[in-house]
């Protein structure tokens, strides 16, 4: 019986090892291709671990392309979206849970209802708005439409709602005004929730593709994900080596962040659902 159980466990583990091998293959293939020589990339034989490991592709990307500009653009737009989106959502959630007025439910639904608005409906008008504001090809064009995010709001609202009113009463008696209460009490108590939703927001912003592609058309304004497209120009001939190097460099921060904050990320995914 115990033997049977043991072999059952082994079979289960083998199933998962197989699933992970298939699941991880594209990622492994990306990193492996980025380390291959050009001849090896197009050779008949397939090596998962390249026989000759070279950083040539990385050198090409750094010397011939504006890799650091892309990194900077991705970094700045991600930072902008993350800070504004979380701050605006947090302020709204605080206002609704801290004050008692007859406008509270209106304010709540004003945000929640936008969950059902699909991206395509806002796409064209926002494109017009961004053009009229003169923001096209500037990073603001990527940041501003993503500040409003009902999922982030809802997640934070649920957490703020759980703060016992006594904390606020004490803070008021101690003479703390709303801004002080917000920045010291609320943000302190919801540190976990704020960091969880922040991680999701950062990953989502870093990975944006469709909208930046529409509004960032100049080479010098491109973010990492958009810049990658230029390696795949069929007329110029695909430059797979440098492409794989850039793709690896773009994915690395996300994978490292994931491995560090794994538990937080997975928990945030479960409680906030899939962000959009």
């Amino acid at each position: 019986m115990t033997n049977k159980k043991k072999s059952g466990q082994i079979v289960l583990c083998l199933i998962f090892v197989a699933v992970i091998l298939v699941n991880m293959f594209p990622v492994v293939w990306m990193v492996s291709s980025s380390l291959k020589t050009n001849d090896e990339l197009f050779s008949e034989k397939l090596h998962i671990i390249p026989p000759v490991i070279t950083l040539e592709s990385y050198r090409v990307v750094m010397e011939e392309y504006s890799l650091f500009t892309w990194y900077k653009n991705s970094f700045l737009s991600t930072a902008g979206i993350f800070i504004l989106q979380v701050l605006v959502a947090l302020m709204a959630a605080f206002g609704i849970t801290y004050y008692k007025t007859r406008w509270n439910s209106f304010a709540f639904y004003f945000i929640i209802v936008t969950m059902v608005i699909p991206f395509q409906v806002t796409m064209i008008p926002n494109y017009v708005t961004i053009s009229n504001l003169g923001l096209k090809d500037k990073l603001g064009s990527v940041i501003l439409p993503y500040v409003a995010n009902a999922t982030t709001f809802f997640y934070l609202y649920q957490n703020l709602k759980g703060i016992p009113r006594e904390y606020y009463e004490v803070s008021r008696i101690e003479g703390g005004n709303a801004v002080w209460t917000f920045s010291r009490i609320t943000m302190g108590l919801c540190k976990g929730a704020i960091s969880a939703i922040s991680i999701l927001t950062v990953i989502d912003s870093w990975n944006l593709y469709f909208w930046p592609m529409l509004v960032l058309t100049k080479p010098e304004s491109r973010t990492m994900t958009i810049a990658l497209r230029q390696f795949l120009d069929f007329e110029m001939g695909n430059r797979w080596g440098p492409f794989m190097a850039t793709a690896t460099l773009a994915s690395l921060p996300v994978i490292v962040a994931y491995l560090f904050f794994q538990r937080n990320i997975i928990n945030a995914f479960i409680s906030a659902g899939v962000k959009g």
Partner: peptide
């Protein structure tokens, strides 16, 4: 005072949702 407080904390959200969510639906 309560109304004003809510309004001030809600104002950024009001602006961003109005410009980038509600205006687009109507405009579309």
């Amino acid at each position: 005072q309560q109304n004003l407080g809510l309004f001030l904390f809600f104002l950024p959200a009001l602006i961003f949702y109005a410009v980038f969510k509600y205006f687009p639906i109507i405009y579309s």
